[in-house]
Design a protein around this nucleic acid. Structure first.
Lengths: 230, 230
DNA sequence: CTGCTAAGAATGGTATGCCATTTCCGGCAT
DNA sequence: ATGCCGGAAATGGCATACCATTCTTAGCAG
């Protein structure tokens, strides 16, 4: 591809983002959606030709995703989609127990009409996904629920930190299967935020995390049992 | 510089890190130490010639620092060293109130001999810096104190999140001047960790943050008064 | 058949060069 | 003097090319 094509190629609608940003965004989505499996190779040249750009923007995207924690960049060799271990997950539980209490409490304090409307929309999507037994849609909506709550908290640092935790959060959500139960708890949390129940929030959040944790353990036991059964 | 020089230039002692990593590390240090003032321009070509590399590793370093939150990358123009606002600082206080309680509690639970020794060494350095009224050394050691405690907590996610918060932490530390007082509180916290006082930790950490916050407010008032006086 | 080695292939790391966009600055009109 | 324009300079974004390192595999020795 020549330098000139690079610009003519851009879609007619003013598209300001750079190639490297677009590649990063696309890779991030593919990883979070599970299209790129954890551990799978990420070869610069392949990605470059796949996305129709040169290696440079791809390199930069990989570096960004490395810092974000989605990609493992081994020196002088291919990068891989990051794999999370059980230890990573228990680390996540510890941090969430501290951060989510804060997040939900702030959200209950600082909520506004527009934000609540957005949160309700996400909750509805989650409910629809759970009813239709569409795990991908439900989990995506569940992840969105947490992200919107984080926005409602009105703390930009919290947003940045959540960015780092996002991949692990989605991974953790893939580890339990009773979608309806999660959704129901999200509904309770939504009500508490809507009513500004700052006091009761800590108890609710910890209960939510406790039940998620228990479900995950049960899920893992089932998986393990099935493995043995084969 | 030619491609061949690039390797001969490397120091004799096996130096594995790539140029882009070295540039990122060096820039990060310079920013955190205040050599590069917040808001100052970061021009790729200038940095490249300054560090004796081409623009490519510099670009990658800047992208990384952008994700880490130390640099603001405006599209198609020079990057600047990130400037923090009062709002950023109060966001930081909120998050610290949640995360540091967790961090210190885990550190008290999981401490080991080697870690305590390292922590004591950092504390001694901080004390020496405070006694010698060397603000740079004292603050650097104070920042190290927090980082070592985070390591003692034995939670890798906490390490990653701290990376994101590091710049703001150092900035916040620059905002109060009673070095000896901070050091004394760190000594108390050290003792609590050494004795595994998990229970008392929450109270101590919140007290430490409260006093830091108060000092910062007083510091700002003094600065403001001095500004009017001129 | 197995293990080792060396050569080739694959891949990441960086330098260079060109283009697009932004910024800067001097001159002109008001 | 002040504001506005236009062109030049500065700067970032990307493609390409080449080198260094790592990986892979074919061939050989045992």
């Amino acid at each position: 591809m020549t330098q000139t094509e690079q610009t003519t190629q851009a879609s007619p609608s003013a598209q300001r983002a750079s190639d490297s940003t677009r590649v990063a965004d696309r890779l991030r989505d593919e990883i979070l959606d599970g299209v790129r499996a954890p551990g799978s190779k990420l070869v610069e040249r392949d990605l470059a030709s796949e996305f129709g750009v040169s290696r440079v923007p791809v390199r930069e995207a990989l570096k960004v995703l490395d810092v974000e924690g989605l990609v493992t960049l081994r020196p002088n060799t291919w990068a891989v989609v990051r794999e999370f271990t059980a230890s990573d997950l228990s680390d996540l539980d510890e941090v969430r127990s501290a951060l989510e209490v804060l997040t939900f409490r702030l959200a209950a304090q600082r909520r506004d009409e527009a934000g609540l409307a957005r949160l309700r929309a996400v909750l509805d999507a989650e409910l629809a996904g759970a009813r239709a037994e569409d795990p991908v849609a439900a989990r995506r909506a569940a992840a969105d629920f947490h992200e919107v709550v984080t926005e409602l908290a009105g703390n930009r640092l919290l947003d940045e930190l959540t960015e780092t935790m996002r991949s692990r959060m989605r991974w953790a959500m893939g580890q339990h299967d009773d979608l309806m139960h999660v959704t129901e708890e999200h509904r309770v949390l939504f009500e508490a935020i809507a009513q500004g129940d700052v006091r009761g929030m800590e108890r609710l959040v910890l209960a939510h995390m406790e039940s998620s944790h228990r479900q995950r353990v049960e899920h893992e036991e089932r998986e393990e049992a099935r493995g043995r059964g084969r």
